[in-house]
Structure formats: C-alpha cells, structure tokens
C-alpha cells in the first residue's frame, strides 16, 4: 500500500464523528474606513499620501529618489515617472537592482493595514519583495473594514499567486528590536487616490 493510501486509511479510521462547520458572521459597522486604514498604516511605518492625480504621485516619487535610481512600475498611467513593466520579458533575477517598485492594489483592509495584491498587478511575483522600496497605489473607494470583507471580495476571483502586504519587510529577531528591511523593502509608501 502506498504511503498516501496508508495515511488516508489511518486518518479515516481515527477521525472523530463529524463536527459541524460554523457559519462565520461578524457584524461590521457601516462607515468610511479610510481614516482607520491611514491610522493603521502609520503604526506600520508606512508613509501615506492622499493624492488627486498621477502628477502628484510623480512629484512625490521624484522628490524621494535620486536620478540614478532604477524605478519601475506596473501601472501604464505612471510611465512618465518610472519604467513601465507590462509583461514578463526577462529573468526575475534582473530586478535585483530595483530601488523602487510602484504597483497598484485591489483593496486595503482597515483593521490591519494590509493591501491585497495579485500576480496580474505585479507581473513578476518577486517584484514587491525584491525592490528596496515599495509604493502602492490604492483608491479610497476600496478600503474595507476587516478580513471577512476582504475574503468576501476575494472569493471567486482568479489569481495564481496573491499576497496581503502590511508595511515594509521587518524583523525583531535580535533582542526584539524592530528593524525595517529584513529581506524585502526597507520602506513603503501608500498613495491613496480618489
């Protein structure tokens, strides 16, 4: 008998009689969650900018970077300010020297500051991790209260890889001292658009 069959048989034999699955229902206050989202992002060391148009994003990016920095974006609307990546053309390892990556997110979650990003939005899965700095663009109309709302939105959407990102990469492994920039981005900006 294969290990698979042996394991499944033993599990079947030992599993207890069926216990019902609960229906998860958490009431959510009906309100605008933007202020909570912004406040949460600040606790995650994220720089938050409310912007009216792409020009404002471009200006902030330019003010925060050097001319020699490699800046890339997966958003066609920002191609005046960064090198536009619209499809996978090269080996992902070539992204190693990206200083700043600007990507969109589907929505943000107020309770934890996480933004939901799928592979279609980033082209290269490694992009939001390998860049030294990350900027995420999100519409203020897409701020949800909590993770239950988030998964209601995610159900039945298509992705091959997706990730919740909540701030820059970090570690506190050395004596519980928080250090930003463990392996991924050392800093993160969130641009909130209309």
């Amino acid at each position: 008998m294969s290990s698979r069959d042996k394991i499944l048989q033993q599990v079947k034999q030992h599993q207890p009689s069926t216990r019902a699955l609960p229906k998860v229902e958490i009431a959510v206050e009906d309100k605008d969650w933007l202020a909570d989202f912004k406040a949460r992002l600040e606790t995650l060391h994220v720089a938050v900018f409310e912007v009216s148009d792409n020009n404002s994003i471009g200006t902030i990016i330019q003010n925060n970077s050097k001319a020699t920095d490699r800046i890339v974006t997966t958003m066609a609307s920002l191609k005046d300010y960064a090198v536009h990546i619209d499809r996978v053309e090269e080996d992902a390892h070539q992204l190693e020297n990206v200083e700043l990556a600007i990507i969109p997110a589907h929505f943000g979650v107020a309770e934890n500051g996480a933004v939901w990003v799928t592979d279609a939005l980033i082209k290269y899965r490694v992009l939001p991790f390998i860049a030294q700095q990350l900027a995420v663009v999100i519409s203020k109309r897409n701020i949800l209260a909590n993770m239950h709302q988030a998964y209601s939105r995610i159900t039945n959407t298509n992705y091959e890889f997706a990730v919740f990102i909540a701030g820059p990469s970090k570690t506190a492994d050395i004596e519980q001292s928080l250090v930003l920039g463990a392996h991924g981005p050392k800093s993160m900006m969130v641009f909130i658009t209309d």
């Binding site: 998860v24 949460r40 309770e111 934890n112 500051g113 996480a114 991790f129 909590n146 993770m147 239950h148 988030a150 998964y151 209601s152 995610i154 159900t155 992705y159 890889f161 997706a162 990730v163 919740f164 990102i165 909540a166 701030g167 820059p168 990469s169 970090k170 506190a172 991924g184």
Partner: peptide, 26 residues
Amino acid sequence: QQHLSVFLRLLARSATGQPITTYSSH
C-alpha cells in the same frame, strides 16, 4: 478560503501582538 479570514486575524495577534504578518502569501 473564507476561513483564512478567521485564522489570519488570530495568528499574528496571538503570536507577536501584530494585527497581521507583513506578508500573507497565497
């Protein structure tokens, strides 16, 4: 998949007192 909402809300808060880990990769 929807059950991830319950577990991701509990995991990092119980572990280190964070609202969620920086990355929850699917």
